[in-house]
């Protein structure tokens, strides 16, 4: 370092070192106590009876069926919410229409009400005593205590994830690129596939990852509509509860470790996508702010 640089080096500002270390220590202790310890306990409890028992639990037909149902529910609700999310975000970000703010608020609704109530709604509508109950019974259709109910409840609970991720992004990007595509002769589809989608792909992926994590992990709403029929309407989180209530603690933790593992994978993916957002070129996700563009002059 040259003398000049030493002189120009900024003086440290902010709290004295002791305070800073103390704050860091508190934060780390908190994370260890509330995140790391429970995380480790899941895996230690799961493996308490050995690897043999662990895999035996996972191979159990009831567990396999719960995993299958969870995959089905997520497999249906995530693509649908992806579609709804893009459509809603598109409408809100690119068009002005009456009731826009109401729509914005409604999208957040699933976040602001208890999941149990989300489940109750469907029971009240489609349950045997519900509005459409008698009609559904007459036509031999089952929604509550069956797979369709679980899918519906999952869709409801995970509805906001994709839309919430895309709305601010699309609003920030504005409409001009789409307008440019139109003037250049692109049809509506071409505009969407060649301009809109590439611009939102990382935001969309981010939303899908979060949506998927919630869809697989949802307990409350699904619990209300499922009926807990082992082997038929049991998802992974519900299965964990059943095992736990039957005093099969290591079994419960073994299945729970699947969800924990999913959470870790989600976290990794999320971090990776975030890195790509702001990554080196970052052209799709970090537009140069207008102000900067205007003043950007090659020296």
């Amino acid at each position: 370092m040259t003398d000049d640089a030493k002189i120009n080096a900024p003086h440290r500002i902010g709290e004295p070192p002791l305070v800073r270390r103390l704050l860091i220590a508190i934060a780390l202790a908190f994370i260890a106590l509330f995140l790391i310890v429970p995380l480790l306990s899941v895996f230690t409890e799961a493996l308490r009876q050995g690897l043999g028992f662990y895999f035996q639990t996972l191979r159990d037909p009831m567990t396999v069926s719960a995993i299958e149902l969870t995959l089905i529910a997520a497999g249906i609700s995530v693509p649908l919410n992806c579609l709804f999310g893009v459509a809603a975000a598109w409408a809100i970000a690119k068009f002005d229409f009456p009731g826009k703010n109401i729509l914005l608020t409604l999208i957040d609704l699933p976040f602001s009400i208890s999941p149990v109530i989300s489940g109750m709604i469907y029971v009240l509508i489609f349950g045997a005593q519900g509005w459409f109950g008698p009609w559904l019974v007459d036509h031999n259709l089952r929604i509550i205590f069956a797979v369709p109910g679980i899918v519906l409840a999952t869709i409801f609970v995970t509805f906001p994830f994709v839309a919430r991720e895309l709305i601010p992004l699309m609003q920030a990007q504005g409409r001009t690129e789409e307008e440019a595509a139109r003037v250049l002769g692109a049809s509506g589809w071409q505009m969407f596939w060649r301009v809109t989608l590439p611009n939102i792909k990382w935001g969309l992926l981010y939303g899908v990852i979060l949506c998927n994590a919630r869809a697989m992990g949802e307990f409350g709403a699904v619990s209300v509509v499922s009926g807990h029929i082992q082997g038929r309407t049991n998802t992974i989180p519900l299965h964990v509860q059943i095992l736990y209530e039957n005093n099969n603690i290591p079994g419960a933790f073994a299945v729970a470790s699947l969800l924990t593992f999913l959470a870790l994978v989600t976290l990794l993916l999320k971090t990776w996508v975030e890195y790509k957002h702001t990554g080196l070129r970052g052209t799709a996700f970090t537009p140069v702010p207008l102000k900067k563009r205007q003043t950007e002059i090659p020296a």
Binding site: T176, E177, A180, A181, R194, P198, T283, A284
Partner: peptide, 10 residues
């Protein structure tokens, strides 16, 4: 040609 160019950033 748009005021802020509206180039396709990707």
């Amino acid at each position: 040609a748009f005021q802020h160019y509206a180039l396709f950033r990707h």
